[in-house]
Computed example of a mutant assay.
Amino acid sequence: MTSIPGIGEVIALIILSEIGDISRFPSKKQLTAFAGLDTLVFQSGKYLARSGKISKRGTPYLRKVLYMTVTAGISNQSTGTSNKVLRDFYDHLLEQGKTKRVAFTATSCKLLRIIFGILKSNTTFISQS
């Protein structure tokens, strides 16, 4: 997990301790729900409304660590962005007209999906750019 730019040894250990055994989560959606980054859905009869808010039903520590990691990942440094994949995704969402908060939450979900893929496949992070 430390192959992801912006994640060091301490952050990786915190994430691993919060997630635990990755085989508990058969899909990335279940891991997203565990982190509390899934959206709330209100339904009554045929009416279906999405509030746009995250559920926050999972572990708050994992959300905080993802927040810090995404903050470091999308920040512009003198040497360029820390994590080009996250920064490009964040910028793409802003160009689509999403608010900064929505784009930031979606980028946190993206990072969680990357972590899920790395842990499930037992590989390292390879940037496509």
Results as ranks from 00 to 15, higher is better:
V102W: 01
K110I: 08
Q96I: 13
A49H: 10
R87H: 15
T71Y: 05
S55K: 07
F104A: 04
S51M: 09
S108M: 15
F104H: 10
S55N: 11
I11A: 10
F104D: 01
G45D: 02
T107L: 05
K100M: 02
L119V: 05
L13N: 14
K28A: 14
G97Y: 12
S17G: 05
D91V: 02
S44D: 08
T39I: 15
Q77I: 12
T71W: 08
L111S: 00
K84I: 15
L94H: 11
K46P: 05
A33D: 05
I118Y: 00
F116H: 02
T71M: 13
L16I: 14
K110C: 13
S121A: 13
K29D: 12
A72M: 07
L62Q: 01
K110D: 09
L66I: 05
E18W: 04
S82H: 07
F104R: 02
L112S: 04
F116E: 06
A49F: 14
D88H: 09
S75W: 10
E95A: 10
R50E: 06
G20R: 08
S75I: 10
V41N: 07
A12T: 03
L119E: 07
T39F: 11
I126V: 15
I126W: 00
N76D: 09
S129M: 01
K84L: 12
K100S: 05
R57A: 11
M68S: 05
R63T: 01
